[in-house]
Design a protein around this nucleic acid. Structure first.
Lengths: 235, 235
DNA sequence: CGGAGTCTTGACTCCAATCAACAGCGGTGG
DNA sequence: CCACCGCTGTTGATTGGAGTCAAGACTCCG
């Protein structure tokens, strides 16, 4: 009974009955009364993904949150050099695709490593429940997602590649807005700590950028050549 | 009017009037009606932290969420080698210390880099509002915090230090429970991708661990010597 | 048995860490 | 006032660890 065309080895086990969920304690819907669950008529699907099957792809519109019942999933994200990096693993009890509660599509590609059983929950319904009940939901969600996006950016953009690449990506993306070609000139030590480099290496790299006229430092600010640094950022 | 004893250059500007907040749109409490805000009588403090002042310390009990109105804050986390690593920067519009909504204390030390103005919100109140209104709140919160903890772990534990250290920490913490001295033997490529290493380096390291009798691989599982690997993990 | 994919090992290279010295700058106090 | 100090940033010389390239071993499966 394979329904998902995109992935081999993916099967649909029918709609879940959340009231009888064996994971009910500690499960996503643990707090919902039977009554509320009924009213929601939530079309939660139970699915199984085989090894190497893809739950969702980075960039595509995010309509579902996945609750992992069993198995192992890797989340990968495109890296600056064109390859992709694993940012973390998820297993039983974890949620995948929480970004479906925010805008901007899936942030990762989720791929099963071993056979994985999940409940697939339409994000719209989750948002609806929350909007209805919790006045803080949207703003809290945004902040959580922001932190997570930032953390993933450090993993994918700032802990990988050459010193030049990291420093360039840091200058371009971390402290500056896309319109503005300047940012606060942090102490070398702070840059080094974020980028997993030494103070000396950061200093050398910044000095080198200055020599190449990609960067200027005046009164505690960096002014930079976006195009030039963008090129260095691919290293 | 300096009230906070812990940090120099920290001052208290009085209780915030959230109804008049200049950030009301897009602010944390944007969704709350005046009426609800009134009923909560929330003692939200407005505070200013000078450069190098500490908002909170990693490990201490987390009682407040901070909403940053202006300035720049660095979040640092203890690294395996004893030093500390910056995991990300926060600025205006970001929230710091959202982990106060979960258990386990602050995950980072938050230190102002430039003069920083914040609203300090008692976490208990946020939890109360949410528990009252949103049946999904606690479970969603837990999942978000899990993802974030996992992401931070990759930054602090798995992208830093020697290949030996990273592989050892991966084996000890990522796929295994603390009681159990075994975990799924992932393909070297996946380990390499998570650890920012090459397949060859991971292979060499794993082989070396086997030679030193720290690790055994049987039928798709790793069995390891926790104490021995823990020593290697400090490298 | 063969072949594809994964894992291992070796030789060499190169980038960043390390160790060390020094320059610049602001603050402090004699 | 200026000599001294501490702090940050810069630069050089050297080293070491991981990347790279290449070849072979092993395993699983058709």
């Amino acid at each position: 009974m394979t329904t998902n065309i995109r992935c081999r080895d993916t099967s649909w086990l029918g709609q879940a009955n959340c009231k009888l969920c064996t994971l009910r304690r500690g499960a996503l819907f643990a707090g919902l009364s039977d009554e509320v669950l009924d009213r929601l008529l939530m079309p939660v699907d139970q699915m199984v993904f085989g090894a190497k099957a893809v739950l969702y792809q980075e960039g595509e519109p995010a309509h579902h949150v996945f609750s992992i019942r069993e198995g192992l999933v890797k989340l990968t994200q495109a890296a600056p050099n064109g390859s992709s990096r694993i940012v973390r693993f998820l297993s039983a009890g974890d949620a995948a695709g929480l970004e479906a509660l925010s805008d901007g599509g899936y942030r990762h590609t989720a791929e099963a490593i071993a056979a994985t059983q999940v409940c697939r929950i339409p994000a719209e319904n989750l948002v609806e429940i929350n909007r209805q009940y919790s006045p803080l939901f949207e703003e809290l969600t945004r902040r959580w997602q922001d932190s997570l996006d930032r953390a993933d950016e450090v993993i994918t953009q700032l802990s990988t590649g050459t010193a030049q690449g990291r420093v360039a990506r840091f200058l371009l993306n971390t402290l500056s807005s896309p319109e503005d070609n300047s940012c606060l000139a942090l102490p070398r030590e702070d840059m080094a700590s974020l980028l997993s480099l030494t103070v000396e290496t950061v200093s050398r790299t910044v000095a080198e950028f200055k020599r190449r006229d990609l960067l200027e430092e005046k009164r505690g600010l960096f002014y930079f050549d976006r195009a030039g640094l963008a090129h260095a950022a691919t290293l």
